[in-house]
Each structure stands twice: as structure tokens, then as C-alpha cells.
Design a binder for these strands. Structure first.
Lengths: 159, 159
DNA sequence: AATGAAACGTTAAGATC
DNA sequence: GATCTTAACGTTTCATT
């Protein structure tokens, strides 16, 4: 579980797996200059250390009819009514249950949240805003920006 | 290459692969009620149709010393000098080469860009802003919001 | 046209050096 | 870390519906 600094080989392996999570250890080994069993042992170590979180398939939203992406700035109500849960905790818990919300971060500045929402079309988006988000007791206000073009969307971080 | 609407089984398979891109076809089959060869055929079809884009390993940023994430709103200069490339194209091309920028979208509203930037610490962030982003000929101005907490960060879209 | 069962080839995983 | 062995998995084939 310790983070004993990654060497050049670990980084090379990570870069490859971040591009292709199913590349065989044989191919990785050829590229980085190791045998497949050496690659395997390093990968297992990286998994156990929590460096590799998990492996996923990436689905193309357009190909499944999810053509509209929006970023949403959400401002929560400041006041906590004593008999209710804290608005922040309530909001965070709800976000986990909304499948349209694929990304949510708490930001500095105006202590609000940035959400990325993926839906079929404008009708679905409206329904999400009107019937779900703005009806939520913790939400004070929100501001939408629609995505015109996904210029870059990588899951790879610069190791 | 055609998008012949996904049935219940396709969606169930996609949901599982979006959570674990290395789940064996045997296990997926047990869960969705198919044999492994039937699962394989469906997965290959989904890959060829472009529904499954690719498989990747997800790396934990903190575990590799990338502890600072920021969202950046970037406004480009409006004017194109006739002898230069269009500022928009120039900016988009540069974004592809900057490894710190893991996400970039063109947004409606003020025709600007939203960037997600992942770096080691504030020193690296400053250097990126001062030496790279603000020195870029297409960039007029930018505004930073730091991420306090990644409330939700999934690569799974709601199929 | 899609499935399940079984055979086959490839890859992962483990042992040894 | 490399080589060798075995167990697991992915892939193909084919009979069945």
C-alpha cells in the first residue's frame, strides 16, 4: 500500500494501460523492455498500491443516443434548518443516485458545485433540471452551459 | 457499423463493462443470463459498432502525486490576424499537446472553453498558467476554480 | 439470426532459477 | 528479472432453436 516512487518502467506501463486497458503483458513487455511476468508483477503491485484504481470500458455517448452534454454550476442554500440534514451532505448523496450526473466537483470560489450531465436531448435535460435538480431541497440556483464540442476527453493522467 | 437499438442484454453487458472492463465473459454471462460465447459475440458487435470506444486503466491521481485539479474557463481573442491561423484552431491543437489538460470542451454562452487540469501542486499550476496558457497567442484571459472535492467521477454513462 | 456446448489457441498466473 | 509450466480465459466451430 506504500507509494514507493514509480520508476521509468512503471510509468511506461501506466501510460500504455491508460491508452489500452486490455493490452497484453506480452505486448507491454516488448514495448517497455521487460518479460511478461515482470510486467505482470509490476501491474499487480500498482493495483495493490491503489495506483491503478480499476479498468473500465468507455462507451461512446452518441452511439447510445446520449447526444447532449452540459456543465452545470449549482449553488446550494446556505442555511441549515436544525431539523434537517446539512444541505451539502444531502446534495452529495443525491448526486450519487442521479445517473445523468457523470461528474461532480466541489469548487473553490463561491462554494458551489460543478456538474457534468449527459442526457439524450433537450427534453430530457429540461426534465432533469425542472423535476429533479431544482426540486431538490438543498439547491438554491443553477446555471447551464451546453457543450458544443468535446475538444479533448481523456481518462489518462500525465504520469 | 449500424446502431440497431440496444436490447436489455446489450445494456446489461455495457453497464457491467463500464464498471469493470476486465470482467470475464463467463462472469458477465452468469449475471445477464447468457453463455460466454454469446456475450463475446455481443461485445464484438458493440466494439465494431463504435458503442464501446475502448478499454482503459484508470489511475488514481493522488497515488502518483497529482494532488491538484482545477477547472479553468478560458476566453480566446476574437480577432484573427490575416497572416495567422484562426485562434480557435490554434488553441485546440495546443490543448491536445498539453498533458496537464485532461478535459476540454467548447461551451455555449460566452463562446469560451472549459478545461480540467491535473497537476502536482500549486507551483506546477502557476507555471502552467503563466508560462504556457497565458503565453498562448490565442488566449485572451482565464479564470480558475480549484477542486476541493471530487464528489462524483464516473466514466460510466447511463445506458 | 442467435444461442449453448465443446474444442482449440492465447494469455494470465505461479513456480523455479 | 527471465524462463518454464499450468490454469484460466478468449475465441472459433458447430449443432440446435
Amino acid at each position: 500500500m506504500e507509494i514507493n516512487a514509480l520508476d521509468k518502467l512503471d510509468k511506461a506501463i501506466l501510460r500504455r494501460l491508460q491508452q489500452n486497458g486490455r493490452e497484453t503483458y506480452d505486448v507491454i513487455g516488448e514495448q517497455v523492455g521487460l518479460s511478461s511476468s515482470a510486467v505482470l508483477r509490476r501491474v499487480k503491485r500498482l493495483e495493490e498500491a491503489g495506483v491503478i484504481d480499476r479498468y473500465v470500458a468507455l462507451v461512446n455517448p452518441e452511439a447510445v443516443g446520449l447526444g447532449l452534454t452540459a456543465y452545470l454550476n449549482v449553488r446550494l442554500e446556505k442555511h441549515t434548518e436544525s431539523h434537517k440534514r446539512n444541505p451539502m451532505d444531502l446534495f452529495r448523496a443525491s448526486v450519487q443516485t442521479w445517473p445523468e450526473v457523470v461528474e461532480c466537483a466541489a469548487l473553490t470560489g463561491e462554494m458551489d458545485y460543478l456538474l457534468r450531465v449527459v442526457v439524450q436531448d433537450m427534453a430530457h435535460y429540461s426534465r432533469f433540471i425542472m423535476d429533479t435538480l431544482l426540486k431538490h431541497p438543498s439547491v438554491e440556483d443553477c446555471k447551464t452551459s451546453f457543450v458544443l464540442d468535446r475538444v479533448k476527453a481523456t481518462t489518462a493522467i500525465p504520469v
